[in-house]
């Protein structure tokens, strides 16, 4: 059942992208489908399809995570379909020097602050977001703390 879902999701995403290689990797992660795609193939149409498609209906964005893998960055969407009781991990890869992932805020409003948080802490920008600015840190904060190369200025923070 879950494998079928994985294939279905991959097929749909490839269909939207218009070529067969949009889904770079499709596997089961702890029994739940996980697809990896690169940022060029992650468009609002793809997100809209995942949300609207009657067979998928991933209407609940549970979590949105950014991860810094040092050679590239990833944004992980944990989608959940309430009508079908199905999970989906969508991993979107983006280069580290200019991290950019299409915003899904217009599709899932949940993403509003979650994307702002990811932008704030990891410096991944989300074109298409209605109000992308820092949320947890001050507006004039330098750097993005959750990046692996972030150096904590202990002196400035009064820790040294």
């Amino acid at each position: 059942m879950t494998e079928e879902y994985l294939e279905l999701v991959s097929a749909r995403i490839n269909n939207i992208a218009g070529h067969d290689s949009a889904v770079e990797e499709a596997k089961l992660n702890f029994g739940k489908p996980m697809v990896t795609i690169s940022t060029e193939n992650w468009t609002q149409d793809t997100a809209r399809m995942l949300h609207d498609d009657p067979e998928l209906k991933f209407n609940f964005l549970s979590c949105l995570t950014g991860i810094d893998y040092e050679e590239h960055m990833e944004v992980v969407y944990n989608l959940y379909s309430i009508p079908h009781n199905q999970y989906l991990y969508v991993k979107v890869k983006t280069p580290r020097d200019n991290p950019e992932v299409q915003s899904v805020q217009p599709v899932w409003k949940t993403a509003d602050w979650l994307e702002r948080e990811t932008y704030d802490l990891l410096g991944i920008s989300f074109p298409g977001h209605r109000n992308l600015k820092r949320i947890l840190l001050e507006d004039d904060w330098e750097g993005h703390p959750l990046r692996k190369d972030y150096v904590t200025d202990k002196k400035a923070m009064g820790l040294d």
């Binding site: 549970s62 979590c63 995570t65 991860i67 409003k109 949940t110 602050w113």
Partner: peptide
């Protein structure tokens, strides 16, 4: 929710916390 990435070491590589209050208050 919690999203944990492990790289096989003794410290987590990344921990993301999905906090309900954060999502709800927006």
């Amino acid at each position: 929710g919690v999203y944990i990435v492990s790289d096989g070491k003794t410290q987590p590589y990344r921990v993301k916390l999905r906090r309900p209050s954060f999502v709800n208050v927006q």
